[in-house]
Amino acid sequence: MAKKRVIVVCPGRGSYTRETSNYLSGLKPDISSHIISFDKKRESENLTRISELDKNNFRSKIHMTGENASPLIYACSVKDFMLIDKTKYDIVAICGNSMGWYIALALGGAITFDKGYDLIQTMGTLTQNHGSGGQIIYPIINDEWQIDIEKKELVLKEIENSNSFISIYLGGYIVIGGDQNSLDRLLKKLPRNDKYPFQIPFHSAFHTSLLSGVVATAQSSFNRNIFNRPSIPLVDGRGNIWSPWSTNKSELYNYTLGHQIIKPYNFSASIEVALKEFCPDNIILLGPGNTLGGPVAQVLIDHNWNDLKAKSEFVQNQAENPFVLSMGIDEQRGIVM
């Protein structure tokens, strides 16, 4: 039987929650060896081991900070990636949301798993200690997950009026970055929509100019030679493809430790390009959790992928023959393994 072509999508910050505790339990030896290596690095830095964080009762002030959340999410994604049955699935491209770009670099072979930990730990700590501002998330879709043009235009106008920035294009949501005064104005100005506008706790103004002070420190922390050409094509936060055959390693370094830190991350474009360029049979979402399930579906609907036009159709299709396979959902995890 021919392998199914799949795109793998890596999660960003906020994906490890109370519901995903103990995600790293029952590891196979080949996966456990990586977690042990990460734990040794944590111990050398006087930080709580990832395996202990995962076992401990979830506390937002501990588990959601950059220095803990970032490597914890990375470890969970490494586990899921290694559990994908490679005899059934041919991974044709990898992309990620925000911090998920760093995970994609490691899983795609552009950096080693150990250097992936170093990069993710360093960036999580840097943005925690030296980042500024925060992020708000707000929907620009209707109840059927179709883009509402009027709502989108209103949000973009309020972003401009408040002197804040687009941080992430996230399917049917816009993540807004800014200093706290700007965000406070938006929290009052944007129309209430269920729990939105919602300020994401423990986040700085990622992917905006407010993080420009982090760039020099990040670049001084890593040598360009840690980057290689990926073994699997990567799609970045602009929709650019980094190919195993043509990647310029210096440009990959500059993008990762420069451009994407201070410029908007277009997750929607990365999914669109991955779909249209690699034509997958399925999309596999790595855990922890399933935070990207909705945004990915909203991109599918926006581009009428597989003639998909609405949330109700997506839900029905997922029940009958799922196109999106989330490893954070037990039933779908079983299909992937």
Rank of each mutant, 00 (worst) to 15 (best):
W245G: 12
K86S: 11
K263Q: 13
M123H: 12
A93Y: 10
I91V: 15
H259L: 08
Y89L: 03
E251F: 06
N317H: 12
S209A: 09
G134C: 02
N193H: 14
N225P: 11
L257T: 08
K79Y: 08
V296H: 12
A319P: 03
S250K: 15
S212V: 09
L72F: 03
T208W: 04
R49N: 13
E160F: 13
D54G: 03
N254S: 15
L190S: 10
G133S: 02
A106W: 04
E43D: 10
K157F: 04
F113P: 00
T17H: 02
D184Q: 12
Y102M: 11
D39N: 15
T208R: 05
E331N: 14
N22M: 11
I284F: 02
R49E: 15
V9N: 00
D90G: 04
V8W: 03
P280A: 00
Q121W: 10
R18C: 08
Y74K: 09
N228H: 13
S326H: 04
A297H: 08
K311S: 05
V78S: 02
M99T: 04
E153Y: 09
C76W: 11
G289R: 06
I94D: 01
G294N: 10
S25R: 14
D85M: 06
V215N: 06
T247R: 05
I149G: 05
S270A: 14
R185P: 03
T48I: 13
G177K: 01
D236I: 05
I283D: 00
G14C: 03
S221W: 02
T20G: 09
K86E: 12
E320S: 15
C279Q: 11
N290V: 14
Y138F: 08
E19S: 15
S212Y: 10
S243G: 01
K151M: 11
K3V: 05
I329Y: 00
R333N: 08
L27G: 02
G109L: 00
S15K: 05
G96V: 12
V296A: 06
Y74N: 14
V215S: 03
Y117A: 02
T87R: 13
E320Y: 09
G100C: 02
P29E: 07
R333G: 03
T48H: 01
S70Q: 15
K88G: 09
Y89I: 07
G239Y: 02
S212M: 06
Q298L: 03
I120W: 07
L300V: 09
S132H: 10
P288D: 00
V214Q: 01
K40R: 15
R185M: 08
L211K: 03
T17F: 01
D179Y: 10
G96R: 02
S44G: 10
V78E: 00
N254F: 10
Q298M: 13
L234T: 06
S51F: 07
H207E: 13
G172R: 04
A104I: 01
I140F: 05
I261N: 11
S44E: 15
